[in-house]
């Protein structure tokens, strides 16, 4: 089902990437017998992971206008936050990456390793799980009476999101290096604008990705709660039935995902077409067969 480990990752990703603030840290360095108080720049998250998960859960729940009678938004957000927390704790790599991120500064060697470790762990996990996840989505389609376009869009979104993460990994690596070099040469005051530039460059991309992520999860959550009896039933495998959905709400959430998917895809094409090219893989025989069916529909 969709609410696997994949669902939780974007929240941690956002937490790691966008709340970064430049913080000057003092540290002691020994040179021979002398102790020096040195200063270095760190980029640290300004909020806790818990804050981010609450924020994310609320954003997802608030996207749903038409709640089924047996669910309340606040309680649902709480359940989701708890589920996020548990999902991160269950994944030891991810849990460690999140813990380390909360403590390390980017200008300490360890902090830098932690940050890159976090970004690449998140990106790697997303990509590694992707094909299994998509296979699971196709099973959900087969067992449901919902349209293929729904599952096709959800899967396309996750493929696009995996690309977004790779882009962030590349951008973060290169920009962090620049920040480090700049700071070493010019000091904290001069490196702050560099950090701001980095954040300004990354933020619009992350904003678009966030919109899509919220749309994707709110649609998925809506499908789930409409097909659940109570809070305990959420996130468990189940057969999805269209008649349990409010048609208007479903269409609204679906349209919102389609728009956000296009926006995210466009941003990725604009930012790194080579990455998109590298990641675009399909079987020629399938494309040909698809085209032959399309030819019939053209007439």
């Amino acid at each position: 089902m969709s609410f696997s480990g994949l669902g939780v990752i974007p929240s941690t990703f956002r937490f790691g990437l966008c709340s970064l603030q430049p913080v000057e840290q003092a540290f002691e360095k020994k040179v021979g017998h002398l102790k020096f108080i040195m200063k270095r720049l760190s980029l640290q998250p300004s909020y806790s992971f818990e804050d981010y998960t609450k924020f994310s859960s609320l954003a997802i729940v608030n996207r749903i206008d038409h709640m089924p009678e047996n669910f309340e938004k606040e309680k649902l957000a709480e359940v989701m936050t708890g589920w996020y927390r548990e999902a991160v704790e269950r994944d030891s790599d991810l849990a460690e990456a999140v813990r380390n991120l909360g403590t390390g500064g980017l200008y300490s060697d360890q902090g830098q390793r932690n940050f890159h470790g976090f970004i690449s762990t998140v990106s790697r996990k997303y990509s590694e799980n992707l094909e299994d996840f998509i296979k699971g989505e196709m099973s959900r389609f087969v067992d449901s009476d919902l349209s293929f376009s729904l599952f096709d869009q959800l899967c396309m979104f996750h493929r696009t999101y995996a690309r977004f993460m790779k882009l962030m990994e590349l951008q973060t690596t290169s920009l962090m290096k620049q920040v480090a070099m700049y700071h070493r040469e010019r000091g904290i005051k001069r490196s702050k604008p560099m950090v701001d530039q980095f954040k300004n460059r990354v933020r619009p991309i992350v904003d678009v990705a966030d919109q899509g992520w919220i749309s994707s999860l709110s649609l998925d959550l809506y499908l789930d709660i409409c097909n659940s009896r109570d809070y305990q039933d959420i996130f468990k495998p189940k057969t999805l039935c269209r008649e349990r959905l409010d048609e208007g709400e479903y269409e609204r959430l679906f349209t919102s995902l389609s728009i956000d998917l296009s926006d995210l895809n466009t941003v990725l094409i604009e930012n790194n077409i080579d990455l998109v090219r590298k990641d675009t893989i399909f079987k020629e025989s399938i494309a040909q067969a698809w085209y032959q069916v399309a030819e019939v529909y053209l007439t």
């Binding site: 998917l261 094409i269 675009t280």
Partner: peptide, 25 residues
């Protein structure tokens, strides 16, 4: 057999992804 058929749907989705990106371009 069921799994193979589901794999075909995964392949269709890969094609959708490529086609969708091409369409945006």
């Amino acid at each position: 057999i069921v799994s193979f058929i589901e794999n075909l749907l995964v392949d269709i989705n890969k094609w959708s992804d490529a086609r969708n990106t091409a369409m945006l371009q």
